[in-house]
């Protein structure tokens, strides 16, 4: 967002068009309202986005602050205590005497790193590919669309596994990128079709005639229109990264030093005879709950965000935007 003012000033040509330029403060206030406050208001008004957002925030809190409050798990404690029996280990311990709470908490930061890097990578790539492809058209479009189509068809998980086996990454950010290696393609297509639709609309036509740079058209006219898709895809890709990483940690394809809920599951299931009584339930339920609740938060958030698509709901929450006259429908 910060480069907006530079693009604003670097517009070449027709200076007369700039006469009606509003004051910068107004402009920022309006943008803040359109891009930040209004979406936040809409999100808070819907129980889905509200709950989902709070769940996500809670995980971020655990990942950022919680790791400093709770010591990392250490082997050698009392083994296989159930939850709520020993206040030093509120969620119990595993067969090595490691506290499950500590393990769950300390698995959060690498998970969040993977989620963020994967989602940022795929969303950014999709946005670039989609906008350029839709806006430029012609040969560029054909090539980019074909690549997206191919990426979209290749089954994701096996592809990811091949990459992981060959590159053996250990940095969570890099793993996150690999986990979402072809997640960008779907969003790129959506954005492309949105851009195609927008491209021919009159105000963009006007910008083109006025010889405004491609960069500015994309930033000012196109990006705001595709924001909801981007947001939803961001959240869904994040969920994909969680699913993928946990699954691959579980089957042992990812071999890295940091802890993960999938590794916890793997330990429970691969320890011979450990699960043969109901009393071991807490051992598998704890990591499962960590996965499912975060995933539920993301699902709720993206389901609720779809309401952003609905301009009528959005309009009700936009306060600063001047009234556009009495338009009563039948």
């Amino acid at each position: 967002m910060s480069d907006k003012n530079t693009t604003f000033n670097s517009v070449g040509g027709s200076g007369a068009e700039r006469d009606r330029q509003p004051s910068k403060a107004d402009l920022y206030r309006e943008r803040l309202d359109i891009f930040v406050l209004t979406p936040l208001r809409v999100m808070w008004s819907d129980w889905r986005t509200r709950t989902g957002g709070l769940i996500i925030l809670a995980y971020v809190f655990v990942g950022v602050v919680g790791v400093h409050l709770i010591e990392p798990a250490q082997t050698g404690g009392p083994r296989l205590i159930g939850p709520l029996q020993n206040m030093q280990y509120p969620l119990g311990t595993n067969n090595l005497g490691e506290g499950l709470l500590a393990k769950v908490v300390h698995a959060t930061p690498p998970m969040l790193k993977m989620v963020v890097s994967g989602a940022v990578f795929s969303t950014a790539l999709a946005t670039v590919v989609g906008t350029v492809s839709g806006y430029k058209g012609g040969y560029t479009d054909t090539v980019l669309t074909t690549i997206s189509d191919i990426a979209m068809t290749i089954p994701g998980l096996p592809l990811v596994i091949l990459f992981l086996v060959v590159f053996e990454p250990s940095n969570p950010f890099f793993i996150g990128v690999i986990l979402s290696i072809n997640a960008w393609a779907g969003l790129a297509r959506t954005i492309r079709s949105q851009v195609l639709e927008l491209r021919d609309q009159s105000y963009i036509e006007a910008s083109r005639i006025m010889d405004v740079s491609l960069h500015r058209i994309i930033v000012d006219d196109i990006l705001p229109n595709i924001m909801p898709y981007v947001l939803i895809s961001f959240v869904n890709t994040g969920r994909g990264v969680i699913f993928g990483s946990v699954a691959l940690f579980y089957i042992g394809v990812l071999n890295v030093p940091f802890s993960n809920w999938g590794i916890m599951l793997n330990r429970a299931y691969s320890t011979g005879g450990a699960l043969y009584s109901w009393s071991s339930l807490y051992w598998i339920i704890t990591p499962m709950a960590a996965i499912v609740v975060l995933s539920l938060g993301l699902v709720l958030f993206s389901q609720g965000t779809e309401r952003l698509f609905n301009p009528r709901i959005r309009a009700r929450h936009a306060e600063s935007i001047e009234e556009t006259g009495p338009t009563t429908g039948d």
Binding site: F243, V246, A247, Y250, L265, Y269, I284, V292, S295
Partner: peptide, 11 residues
């Protein structure tokens, strides 16, 4: 929809 299939499988 929020439960990964493999979590269900393990359960």
């Amino acid at each position: 929809n929020s439960v990964p299939y493999f979590v269900a499988a393990l359960l």
